[in-house]
């Protein structure tokens, strides 16, 4: 078993992570809206090497029973076969279903579903390349796709992951840090204006005294992500106007 130096301290006090980032640095984020013509709303998010495509279809008629009070949100998450270094060929594995469930819950609370009774909104996420923080990238991509589709939403839902290595809270985990043994990881999806947490998933043990710092690191990461997402949205609207 190799031992990896995930955090290397140089003579200068700030430690560097394995990909050269400082502990509270989020990876470079690029987003694009409206990548597919046929979908009602679509987006593409590239967070470091993690690439996610999101499409939104709806609101449209339900295929089965409909809810007379609000719209049904159907969210499906998929990792494509070549997304990770080992080839996977699973159609419905447990982690994908878990993430699909969580995403459905998040957007069920964020979208104003009472405005569209007897209808259904489909959100599809495809991870083309996975390099850590898949769940956070998916929340961001889905949020942008919903805005592109023009569906009313309470706020721009943003998400970021955080971890704790060598007594240092770090923001935005990549795949190497995720897979190393014993790294606790925390992903928070939130409504930024009210600072309300819609989803929080954590695994690995975080001591209660450090939990506050790790949550703060994730919330700070969300702020940086939100800034870029808002800029992308404004640019897209500007282009549409011209």
């Amino acid at each position: 078993m190799e031992s990896r130096i995930l955090l290397e301290s140089t003579s200068v006090k700030t430690p560097f992570r394995i990909d050269g980032r400082k502990p509270h640095e989020v990876r470079s984020l690029t987003c694009r809206l409206g990548v597919f013509q046929q979908a009602d709303g679509s987006s593409y998010v590239k967070l470091g090497n993690t690439q996610v495509l999101a499409t939104v279809y709806g609101p449209h008629d339900t295929r089965g029973k409909s809810n007379p009070e609000k719209s049904i949100i159907n969210c499906k998450f998929r990792l494509s076969t070549f997304s990770k270094s080992t080839r996977r060929n699973l159609h419905r594995d447990i982690r994908s279903i878990e993430i699909s469930n969580n995403l459905t819950q998040v957007f069920d609370s964020a979208i104003l579903t009472e405005l569209y009774p007897h209808s259904q909104i489909d959100i599809y996420l495809e991870v083309v390349q996975s390099d850590g923080s898949d769940y956070a990238a998916c929340i961001n991509a889905a949020s942008l796709a919903i805005i592109d589709a023009g569906i009313p939403i309470k706020d721009v839902v943003c998400a970021c992951s955080a971890g704790f290595i060598d007594n240092q809270p770090i923001t935005d985990i990549n795949a190497v840090e995720e897979s190393s043994n014993g790294t606790p990881i925390l992903t928070i999806g939130m409504l930024p204006k009210d600072k309300q947490i819609l989803s929080m998933e954590s695994s690995g043990g975080i001591h209660l005294d450090n939990l506050n710092d790790v949550m703060d690191a994730a919330i700070e990461g969300c702020k940086s992500v939100l800034f870029i997402m808002k800029q992308t949205i404004l640019n897209h609207i500007q282009e549409l106007k011209d």
């Binding site: 046929q38 679509s42 495509l53 499409t55 494509s80 060929n89 159609h91 599809y124």
Partner: peptide, 16 residues
Amino acid sequence: FFADISANADPLFEGR
């Protein structure tokens, strides 16, 4: 060879 149509293309292609 292995091919797959993502649900992104159309809700009809969700799942299998």
